[in-house]
Amino acid sequence: MQLEAKNIGFRYHQNPWLFRNFSLTLNSGEILGLKGQSGCGKTTLARILAGYEKTLEGRIELGGAPLPKVGYRAVQLVFQHPEKSVNPRWHMRDILQEGWQPDDELLARFGIQQDWLSRWPNELSGGELQRFCVVRALSPETKFLIADEMTAMLDAITQAQIWQAILELAKERDLGILVVSHEKELVKRVCDRVIELDSVHLERNSFIS
């Protein structure tokens, strides 16, 4: 299966275009890196790919068809700040089970402790919270994961723990992953291929490796 962006373009209101004529193909089982200058629209692109924002030009296709508008999202997005993507008034158990019911084996793989489930979000560290956000996004129906600076706020050990667990799962389930990251070394380590979202030359995107 493929997740494809075909000649997409986007800008906020009447602001200058962030990108135009941008295309990318993410294959199942592939781990693709996306880099680009600060503010060039990487997060916007991530939101468009996951269906949270509509592209103004071109189209997004999943398995050759438009992104489905209803039902479980097969393209899931996890971003930098876990504390902004959980409801502070819910217990961790409810946050985790919002979309599906992960089993204990998966929780263990991501190092989630049973007693964290009965806590509030503000009683966990950023690294602990991000583990929940990742597992929440990884139902068996998820085919593609967009990781937007997913571990940028985490220490190196937590970052490696989360990525190792994801990489293993990606292999088992043939998941495709888009890794948006400023961190060169991380991208080099986990990605099969890297593309650049180039805001200066709006009309082209260059392929690196």
Binding site: G111, Q113, E123, S125, G127, E128, D155, A156, I157, T158, Q159, A160, Q161, W163, Q164, E183, E185, L186, K188, R189, V190
Partner: peptide, 21 residues
């Protein structure tokens, strides 16, 4: 040592567990 080894440019192999609250 574990922190250093877990960097992507080094081993990228994390020790298990988490910092206690």
């Amino acid at each position: 040592k574990a922190l250093w080894q877990s960097l992507p440019q080094n081993d990228f192999t994390p020790i298990p567990g988490f910092q206690p609250l």
